[in-house]
Amino acid sequence: MLFSSGDFSFLLTLSSLVSVFSFLMVALKIEAGRSCKGVSLRMMECYLAIFFFRLCAIVPFEGYLPFDKSGDWFYQTCEALGFCLAGTMVYFCRMRYAATYDPDTDNFQHHWLALGAAGLALIFHPNLNNFLPSDTSWAFAVYLESVAVLCQLFMFMKEGQAAPHTSHFLAAQALSKIMSFIFWASSFNELSTNPNHTIKAFVGNWVVCTQLVQLCVMGDFIYHYIRCIRQGIPVSQLLCSDNV
């Protein structure tokens, strides 16, 4: 309400704000408990790359910014804070509280996710900035973000339990992506800048579909998360056989 001019595009900024608060929650939990237990370093490394490449697209250019006044500086600030928080948690896991981090349960090959996202970004990318590296960076961030949570979900499966703070983090990320999905689904035609091109005519559809992929990937987790909340079951028991 403070930084928006009432335009629908503020939904994109609100999505970023929810995401940033979820990162802040996990960072504070790690610092308070002096433990990285239950946090996927590989997911945080993915998000570090996501925020970095998205900033490369929205700081020097305006093509992917919200249309309202939150796009003047507030949206970029939220993304920059997300980048700093993701970097802080990578530092916590790799250095400050490295003794509490268990790499044996966090072994999802996230570099394949990054390579796949990079390949897709080179082929399917919008052209709102009219600058190939920037447009590709934005698409890469979107595609990698759609699958980054797999690292945390696989870690949950390995451990056989879900850490409460990372469960709440994933729930907040799902809410954030629902908002982002609604925004881009309503304006995806702007992403398809060349309707006569065999590939570029469907870039907008592809971007929206990849965001929908993340919601589908998280669908089962969110169903059981909501079920635990409604029934008063601790979310740490979310993966127990009685609840799944």
Rank of each mutant, 00 (worst) to 15 (best):
A117V: 05
S16K: 09
P66K: 06
A99E: 15
H168Y: 15
L175F: 15
S5W: 04
G6H: 04
C84K: 02
T198S: 04
Y101H: 15
F61W: 05
V208D: 08
L12P: 02
V235P: 13
N196M: 12
T210C: 12
F181W: 12
M89N: 13
K29P: 03
N130I: 13
P66F: 05
L85A: 03
L48W: 13
M218T: 11
N205A: 04
S35Y: 06
A121E: 03
A114I: 06
A114Y: 01
S5A: 10
V149E: 00
G82Q: 01
V147W: 03
T193R: 08
T210F: 13
H165N: 12
F92N: 06
G87L: 11
W112Q: 10
N127P: 09
N243D: 11
D72Q: 10
P60A: 04
W112M: 08
G87I: 13
Q76G: 09
K200C: 07
A80R: 00
A117G: 11
L2W: 15
V147C: 11
Q161D: 04
L113Y: 07
L81W: 07
M1P: 04
L153T: 03
W206Q: 06
F156V: 05
D104N: 15
L191P: 00
G38N: 03
S4A: 04
T13I: 07
Y223F: 15
N194L: 10
P103I: 05
D106K: 05
S236W: 05
F3Q: 07
G71W: 05
G87H: 08
M157A: 14
G204C: 09
N107F: 02
D242K: 12
C93G: 08
F202M: 06
S15N: 02
S70R: 03
I58L: 02
L14S: 10
T166N: 02
D72M: 12
F67A: 14
W73N: 14
S15A: 11
V235L: 10
H110G: 13
S134P: 07
I233K: 12
I222L: 15
L238A: 01
N129R: 01
Q211W: 11
C151H: 06
F21I: 14
F156T: 02
F10C: 12
A49K: 00
P103Q: 12
S192A: 14
S15V: 01
Y75T: 11
G38D: 01
S40F: 11
S134K: 03
P133S: 09
K177F: 05
V26I: 10
P164S: 05
F202I: 09
F108N: 03
D242Q: 15
G6R: 04
V244I: 08
F221W: 10
F188C: 13
L2R: 15
